[in-house]
Each structure stands twice: as C-alpha cells, then as structure tokens.
Amino acid sequence: MIVANRKPFEEIIEMLKPYSKILLLGCNECVTVCATGGSKEVAVLASEIRLYRQKEGKPVEIGEVTLERNCDPEYVESLKPFIHDYEVVLSMACGCGIQFVGEHYRDRLVLPAVNTTFYGVTEEHGVWTERCQGCGNCILHKTLGICPVTRCAKSIFNGPCGGSQGGKCEVDRDIPCAWHLIVDRYRELNMMDKYLEIQPMKDWSTSRDGGPRKRVREDLKI
C-alpha cells in the first residue's frame, strides 16, 4: 500500500487560513489501511480544525467526504454535485489522489493534508515499513526477496557496507541492514556461492530518473 503521514497541524492550519468553507476529502484505499486518511481520520481532523478555528473566533464549515478511491475518474467525478459548495479541498489521500482531484476540478485548489511517504506493509498493528520504491526493474529474484534499492540506505547492490553492525543499519539502529537479511537468506538456502557474483550496475532509466512513467494496455482502452 501507499503509506502516508499526516502533516503537522500548524502546517495545515496555515494552508487553510484564507478559507472558511472546506471540503475535507479522504480515501478508502491505502491511506485508510495505514490509518492516515480514511473516514475516521477525516472525522478527527475535521473536528480538530473546527475546534481550533472556533477558539480563534474564525469558525469554519467542513464537509467530510471519503471516496472509494481518489485515483480513479469514476469516483473523482462523484464530487461534482457538491465540490463547488466549498472554497477549497483539503485532501488526506496520497499524492496521486491529491493531484488527480485537482486535475478534474481546475477551479478549485486541492491542498495536501498528508505527506505521502512510501510503499509499504503493515509489519504489525500500528507499524508500517517500507518495501518498494517502484524502480521499474525488479531484482528481487537475485537478492532472494529483499530489496536493496529500498531497504539499504545506500541502495548498494553488492553489500553490506562497512557500517552494518549486529544486523542493523548505520543510519538507524532500529532499521535492519538489508544486506544482512540477504546474507541470512543466502545461508538459509545454502546459496552462499551466489553471494560472490557481482551484481551489475542498475539501469535506472526505468525508475523516476527516466522521467514520469506511463503504462498502457491497448486492449483495455475504450
């Protein structure tokens, strides 16, 4: 899923300063699962903003809507009947959703209430960690299911670097060293000889470095 963090409250309040009718938009997909921008978080943030603005003597009217998805036109279009009742949209969807809604309603600003952070998993209840960077050229078959591009702080292909200690990364002692995990896998699977193979340089052109990416399936186009 796409994992996001809510922006600091002061930053949100600052963005909302000129407005008194706000549509607070959530999303039922990834940001719901990572408890950042689902209907529940929309309700809490709406309440928090109302309390703050009431205290400041500048009350606001907030519409609370959570779309099934913010990254699909059919759901985004469902905002049409009422989006113009509001001066501005504050979105708790990921960066994709924020932009996509903005593209559909060009006379309304869509402000971000979250910082979109990574593609990750629910490691345990309330804990999400990163797994993928969408580099466009997967090598998980070579690194036995652990992605060094994402999970090594230096994206090293022939690790571990000299900062790996006790299975932890030098950058943060709470982060497992990706290459330590990979070496563990080599050992478990009796494949240590494979470790000696030098991994070739990566072709980054499939990654963001090659420019914005696009996928087309002609057979599905209407």
Partner: peptide
C-alpha cells in the same frame, strides 16, 4: 563489520 562470515568474501568480490 557484520556479518563477519562474508567480510573475506566481500574482499574477494572487490579483488575480482
């Protein structure tokens, strides 16, 4: 550094 067991192998990779 860790894992210790691959530290000589990693040098072998660098030499290669």
């Amino acid at each position: 550094a860790d894992p210790f067991e691959i530290r000589a192998l990693r040098l072998a990779k660098k030499a290669a």
